[in-house]
């Protein structure tokens, strides 16, 4: 038994290593080309070892001090947005698993329908900016994407349905615990894997979001990191591509374009890579099981 398992572990590691290499390889090209000199890449093509190191692109990004402020904005928005979003998502998902709840079908449909139809950008923009006046406030970065995913509700519901043992809820009810108490003290602690999962997906979403900033923020103090990077990217791309006489000012600063694209990706990616292991501990096997047995 043990011997067989060792064989499997080796195979498992081999497969995962191959997979990791497949995933890492393009990323490595990305990182290396972000540190190469632009003309080398244009003339000789991409390679894993830069002909000469050149950090112009990074200098360009960090020259603007606002990048650290933007990091802060993004971290704040990501934290607040994720917490709010996870609370709202788990609460409605739990309601959707309550047996015999009158109107449950309608409620499921109500949630699912939001995934299929959307009114488009202009109506949402009009509503948020003209009725709720969220333009140039921190809300603009949090609220419009707070729960835009019925997807997360559906998978959380599915998780609750299959992994929360009914006996526990029942006995808690018999003990006279309130429904809210049951939800916060029993259901949530039993659901760390799914909370970590949707939490992480929300974090990813908030972290990578630049559209809210694009549409609702003009105040430089509130620009998020991805919006800042995306602005740089689209701008550099625009200036690099265009040679239309009237669009580019004769005296516009020369910016690296090819290597800038790559370094922007690296700068945007780094903090998440640092942050991710924090979430990982929730996926560990047996975490929920102990609780079930106890």
């Amino acid at each position: 038994m043990v011997k067989k398992d060792t064989g499997f572990q080796i195979m498992d590691n081999v497969i995962m290593s191959i997979l990791s290499i497949l995933v890492l390889f393009p990323i490595l090209v990305l990182i290396m080309s972000s540190m190469s000199s632009e003309s080398d890449v244009m003339k000789y093509g991409y390679s894993l070892i830069p002909r000469q190191f050149d950090l112009t692109a990074y200098q360009y990004i960090f020259k603007e001090g606002s990048i650290f402020h933007s990091y802060f904005i993004t971290i704040f928005v990501t934290l607040v947005g994720t917490v709010l979003s996870v609370i709202m998502t788990t609460m409605i998902s739990y309601t959707l698993t309550v047996p015999g709840l009158p109107g449950k079908k309608i409620l499921s449909f109500y949630v699912l329908f939001t995934m299929l139809f959307s009114g488009g950008l202009v109506p949402s923009y009009m509503m948020w900016s003209n009725i709720f006046h969220i333009k140039n406030t921190i809300y603009a970065l949090i609220v419009p994407s707070l729960m835009c995913s019925a997807f997360h509700i559906m998978i959380t519901r599915s998780y609750f349905q299959n992994n929360i043992p009914g006996e526990i809820l029942e006995s808690a009810r018999i003990d006279g615990m309130s429904e809210f108490g049951i939800f916060f003290k029993i259901v949530l602690p039993l659901s760390t894997p799914i909370i970590a999962t949707i939490g992480f997906m929300r974090v990813l979403m908030y972290w990578n979001d630049w559209t809210n900033s694009l549409y609702y923020i003009t105040d430089k103090k509130l620009v998020s990191i991805q919006a800042l990077l995306n602005n740089m990217l689209t701008n550099a791309q625009y200036l690099a591509q265009s040679m239309d006489a009237s669009m580019v000012a004769t005296d516009s600063a020369s910016v690296p374009s090819l290597t800038l694209r790559m370094s922007i990706a690296v700068v945007g990616m780094l903090p998440m890579i640092v942050l991710y292991p924090f979430f990982q501990k929730y996926y560990m096997k047996g975490l929920t099981v102990g609780a079930v047995k106890g």
Partner: peptide, 25 residues
């Protein structure tokens, strides 16, 4: 069932505002 409806309420309101109102578009 009231506590359950209360739990669902924030999301219901949010979807109404963020998704259903703009659907007029």
């Amino acid at each position: 069932y009231i506590p359950f409806y209360i739990m669902a309420l924030p999301a219901i309101i949010y979807f109404f505002i963020n998704n259903y109102i703009p659907m007029g578009g």
